[in-house]
Computed example of a mutant assay.
Amino acid sequence: MGAVLIEGPKLCGKSTTAVQQAESVLNMEPGPTLSLAAINPKLLLQGTTPRLIDEWQLAPQLWDVIRREIDLRGGEPGQFILTESAVPVDWKSFPFSG
Rank of each mutant, 00 (worst) to 15 (best):
V89F: 14
L62V: 02
I70P: 01
D54A: 05
G98N: 10
L5S: 00
Q20L: 15
Q46H: 09
K42V: 00
G47R: 11
I39W: 06
S35H: 12
R68Q: 10
T33D: 06
A86P: 00
S35G: 14
P32F: 15
P77H: 00
Q57E: 11
G8W: 07
G13H: 15
F96Q: 14
S35P: 05
G47S: 05
L11I: 12
P50K: 10
I39V: 08
N27T: 11
S35F: 13
R73Q: 11
Q61G: 12
V4P: 03
K92Y: 10
D90Y: 13
W91P: 05
M28S: 09
N27L: 11
T49R: 12
V65H: 02
L36W: 08
G8F: 04
S24G: 06
V89Y: 15
Q21W: 06
G47W: 09
L26N: 12
Q61P: 02
A59K: 05
K42C: 00
R51Q: 05
L43V: 05
L72Q: 03
I70H: 05
G2S: 08
I6N: 01
F94I: 05
R68G: 00
E29I: 14
V87Y: 01
G2Q: 04
T48K: 15
F80G: 03
A3C: 15
V89A: 13
G2C: 07
G13M: 09
L72G: 00
T49E: 13
R73N: 06
K14W: 01
W63F: 15
P88V: 13
W91V: 13
L5N: 01
P95F: 07
D71W: 11
Q61E: 15
E29F: 14
I66C: 09
S35L: 10
P50C: 04
E7G: 01
L82C: 01
P88E: 09
I6F: 03
F96T: 08
W56D: 06
K42G: 02
G2A: 10
K92E: 13
C12E: 04
Q57S: 10
N27W: 07
K14S: 02
D90A: 13
Q79L: 04
L36R: 04
G31K: 07
T16F: 13
A38W: 06
W91G: 04
I6D: 00
P41N: 01
Q61R: 07
G47Y: 12
W56K: 03
E84Y: 09
A59F: 11
S15V: 01
L5K: 02
V87F: 05
G78R: 11
N40G: 04
R51V: 01
K14H: 00
V65M: 07
F94K: 12
L82M: 03
G78V: 08
I81V: 07
P41Q: 01
L82I: 03
T17E: 07
I53S: 06
A38S: 07
P30F: 11
S85P: 08
A18Y: 02
Q57C: 11
T33M: 10
P95M: 14
Q20P: 05
T17F: 15
V89P: 14
A59Q: 03
W56R: 01
V65T: 14
T83L: 02
L11R: 13
K92S: 09
T16W: 12
G8E: 04
L45G: 01
Q20K: 14
Q46K: 14
P9G: 12
V65W: 11
V25G: 04
Q21C: 09
I53Y: 05
G47Q: 08
P50A: 05
S93Y: 09
L5E: 00
G13F: 10
T83G: 00
K92V: 11
T17A: 07
N40L: 13
V87M: 07
